[in-house]
Design a protein around this nucleic acid. Structure first.
Lengths: 119, 119
DNA sequence: CTTACATATGAATATTTAATCATATGATAA
DNA sequence: TTATCATATGATTAAATATTCATATGTAAG
C-alpha cells in the first residue's frame, strides 16, 4: 500500500478496478497507434474530408490542399491503422472512413471542442 | 474541376460538402493536439486507469507502473489538452477524466479494436 | 518557521516522424 | 504491348517529442 496518499483506501480500490479493466499491452499499443494516426492536422483534415463521403486521391488532395505524395503517405498511415479503407474503381482508389466507431470518435472530438472545463 | 478522376461529378459534390463542413484550421489543430495527447501508450494507459475513477499521482504511478517524473510530465500534457482535470485535496492532486466526450472516445476506440475490416 | 512530503518543471539527449523528391507499380486504353 | 494515368513507395533530411536526472514549488505538520 502507498502511504504518501491521504485517501489510500478509495484509491487502492480504484487502482484494483483499473488494473482488472486494463486492456492487454498489445491492445493499448494498437489503440495508441490509431490515435497517433489521427493526431496530425494534415491527416485529421483528410479524415474530416472523408467523413463527408468517399473520395479518390486527387479529390482528397483538392479537399485538403496538399500534394499527391504527401497525401498518399498519409493515406497509408490512416489505412494501416484502420482509420480508413479503400476500394478500387478503374484507375482510381476510393477512400472512405473505416466504420461507425471512427465517426463516433470524430464526433466526440468535435463536441469536446465546445466543452468548457471545470479545472 | 479535376479530370484525372473518373467520377468527377459525385466527388466534386463531396468535396464541396467536405469544405463547407470543415472546421477552422485552429479547431483542427486543437483536435489533433488532443488526439496526440492520447496517442502515446504511456499516456493512454494513464487515461484508461483514470477511467476507473479519480486518483492521486502516486496511485497513478502504481496503476501504470511508471516513475513520478515521467507520469507528472504526461499528466501535464493530458491536462493541457483537456483530456483530464485535477483538483487539490490536502497535499495531493487528484486527477480524473475531463468529461463524457473523452469517455466516449475511449469507448469507441475499444470497440473499434474488435472490428474486422472489409478492405 | 523549518522540515518533510507530493508534485511540477527545466535541460539534455535519443528516438520518432513528416515532407519532399525521385522513382516504381499497376490499371487502362490505343 | 506500349503509352499514359492514378497512386504508392523508398530514401533523405529536418523537426518534434519522450524519458531521465536534477531541482524547484507549494502545502501541511511539528
Amino acid at each position: 500500500m502507498i502511504n504518501r496518499c491521504q485517501t489510500p483506501k478509495e484509491h487502492e480500490y480504484v487502482v484494483k478496478e483499473a488494473l482488472s479493466a486494463m486492456p492487454a499491452e498489445e491492445d493499448i499499443s494498437v489503440m495508441a497507434a490509431r490515435f497517433k494516426a489521427i493526431s496530425e492536422p494534415s491527416r485529421l483534415k483528410i479524415l474530416l474530408a472523408l467523413s463527408a463521403g468517399e473520395l479518390c486521391v486527387e479529390h482528397i488532395c483538392a479537399a485538403v490542399g496538399a500534394g499527391q505524395s504527401a497525401v498518399s503517405h498519409q493515406l497509408k498511415t490512416l489505412k494501416d491503422n484502420r482509420i480508413i479503407k479503400s476500394r478500387r474503381s478503374g484507375k482510381n482508389l476510393l477512400y472512405s472512413v473505416d466504420d461507425e466507431h471512427i465517426m463516433a470518435m470524430i464526433e466526440a472530438a468535435k463536441e469536446h471542442l465546445h466543452h468548457e472545463q471545470d479545472t
